[in-house]
């Protein structure tokens, strides 16, 4: 473990970001969520050594960091593909065929929600309402929302990730 954690270091850019976050709150712990997001951007997902590193940066007990990291769905505790595809399956998207869309994507990629393709390119997720229900079904790919997704438009979106 210790050998691994030696390699974990924020880039200068991330260090600067974190330093800025720390100026915005009266406690160091309040910068934890932003810090975890930074860590995920830097290291892909949150391993124990990564979380320990964040704990060190914020002078928090590691368990405080684990607690937060495991509470929130946007933190990946397992490795994920290069791209993440999130299909909303909440009420309105469900009414607009999100289950069939998820099924389609699942079949096409050959993975179940929560899994990554063998080439490590894409991880598929089923998620709750993305706050975009007037354009259901909604699919989020990495940071971007895609509106009124059909199987055809999904094909094109996946094509772009290849």
């Amino acid at each position: 473990m210790s050998g691994e954690s030696n390699e974990i270091r924020f880039s200068q850019k991330a260090k600067d970001r974190l330093a800025w976050y720390l100026t915005r709150y009266p406690t160091r712990q309040a910068a934890l969520l932003p810090a975890l997001r930074l860590a995920q951007e830097e290291f892909g997902h949150l391993t124990h050594p990564v979380m320990d590193y964040v704990a060190g940066q914020l002078e928090l007990p590691p368990v405080t960091v684990y607690e937060a990291a495991t509470f929130y769905t946007m933190y990946h505790k397992k490795p994920v593909g290069e791209h993440c595809v999130y299909v909303c399956t909440n009420v309105t998207c469900f009414l607009k065929g999100a289950d069939q869309l998820l099924e389609y994507l699942s079949g096409k990629l050959g993975i179940r929600p929560g899994q990554a393709t063998a080439d490590g390119k894409i991880t598929l997720f089923s998620v709750e309402c993305l706050g975009n229900c007037d354009k259901a079904p909604t699919v989020q790919i990495d940071d971007d929302y895609h509106d009124c997704v059909t199987t055809e438009s999904a094909d094109r979106l996946l094509e772009k990730l290849r």
């Binding site: 969520l33 405080t64 937060a68 769905t73």
Partner: peptide, 20 residues
């Protein structure tokens, strides 16, 4: 970071403080 309960006002406050 993804949790409906953080819309509840005291859940939001806890979350802002860096907690679940």
């Amino acid at each position: 970071a993804g949790a409906y309960i953080c819309g509840e006002e005291t859940g939001l406050i806890e979350s802002l403080e860096g907690k679940p």
